[in-house]
Design a binder for these strands. Structure first.
Lengths: 232, 232
DNA sequence: CTTATCAACTTGTCTATACATTTCTTTAAA
DNA sequence: TTTAAAGAAATGTATAGACAAGTTGATAAG
């Protein structure tokens, strides 16, 4: 592993363990001595912390930990449902509703003139035995011609990355509020009319190709998104 | 201005102008020659682009522009309503509903044992003459003892930064869906029952103090959030 | 014609150094 | 006692160079 990555990971571990609660993080020079690295290497590690929202640097003063309430539902990085449930220690299970070939609906900002072929996977996500989320993935056949089996212990992302050697780079997400569809009511066992929170995303590979489109329909009363934002 | 900042701004301008549409951005060495700077300086400029989601670097290949649809409602950085409306060229105006002293409600994750005194500012935001957002700011009296006048041409953020010399560092945001309150119906002229999208945020200064809490209540049918997320 | 190798170009990591700027404390002068 | 200057410590910016590693295309060998 890289030197700055090691330093970064050490610091994150200590931050999460509360070692720097309300205190200053080691200065550039302190890290230089502790790890016997050049200053730029130490700075790179700290720059990552700042980037992730763990820390804040103030010129002339030092580097300080930013206290987070990281218990809620963060959506500001690419993370799958399963990874998320795992991290928050929620009891989760998934019900496969359907898996079939389909075209990507025009709902996904498609400037595409031609139809895009994909494998459509519809799943219902349960948290604490309540149906909370309907996930519908469109995995492009241009990238993954066929999905042989849905893994029990891996998320789709992890499957693609670990088994198929693909590298996921980034995603764009939009959040809107829409009226409940008939299928929403059925799958989430909601009797009355109402709304769902729809998170639509497009996931990209490192080579720029689109890997998949996903539509996540969340029960509105269970939805909470948390994010961290920096000024400028 | 810094060298890497200049290079960065030049590149952003060119990207937005479409000069690198589907093409490779200048390599490290190309920027070195063009601007007569060291490689690390050029890399810093590009690192900023990557950080902002403008570009993607692939080892051995080059740096590539990420195509964005940046027309929607981005919430992934600290930006005020007015700055936003301006950027998207929307016709906007604001109606001041009330400004008074108040305590910060417990809704804002307050682990605070004592009451926190603040100036409460309630405003209704109109886009294209429709009331879309109710903003309620709680500006802490510990930081700003008194708000003398609400500026017509500046946002609250800009006022604090430019007039009072404060530096805003970051914010945390949560998005939830809640039932319409009576005041929601009145101020947004909504006759029926329904839901609003509530964005609650806490804004921090560079010295770590909390500057303000804000509750933004958005008309659900007009709400759209767009964000960019990177994997790992 | 096919294959293997090499060279050129790219990004990634790391070092060592220099000077600027901000903050805070200590010391010395008035 | 108050004020001013000096110094130490921290982050910010910038340079020059080195080597590693991935990608691509040209070239040479078979």
């Amino acid at each position: 592993m890289n030197k700055y990555q090691i330093i970064h990971d050490d610091l994150v571990k200590d931050i999460l363990a509360g070692k720097y609660h309300e205190k200053m993080l080691p200065s550039d020079y302190a890290l230089m001595n502790r790890y016997h690295v050049a200053r730029e290497t130490a700075r790179k590690a700290i720059a990552m912390l700042v980037d992730e929202g763990y820390a804040m640097r103030i010129k002339g003063k030092g580097t300080f930990v930013i206290q987070h309430n990281r218990y809620s539902f963060p959506i500001s990085h690419v993370e799958s449902y399963r990874e998320l449930a795992n991290r928050l220690h929620l009891k989760e299970h998934t019900q496969l509703v359907a898996i079939q070939d389909a075209e990507v609906p025009a709902t996904f900002d498609s400037k595409a003139e031609t139809v895009v072929l994909a494998t459509e996977i519809t799943r219902v996500r349960y948290l604490d035995d309540e149906p909370i989320i309907i996930d519908r993935d469109y995995v492009l056949k241009a990238v993954i011609p066929e999905i042989l089996a849905l893994p029990k212990s891996l998320s789709l992302f992890e499957l693609f990355e670990q088994q198929l050697g693909l590298t996921i780079s980034h995603a764009t997400k939009t959040i809107t509020i829409e009226a409940l569809s008939i299928q929403d009511k059925q799958l989430m066992k909601l009797p009355e009319a109402g709304v769902v929170v729809v998170v639509r995303s497009e996931t990209f590979l490192s080579d720029g190709r689109t890997l998949s489109y996903t539509e996540s329909r969340h029960r509105a009363d269970k939805f909470k998104s948390v994010e961290f934002a920096r000024r400028h």
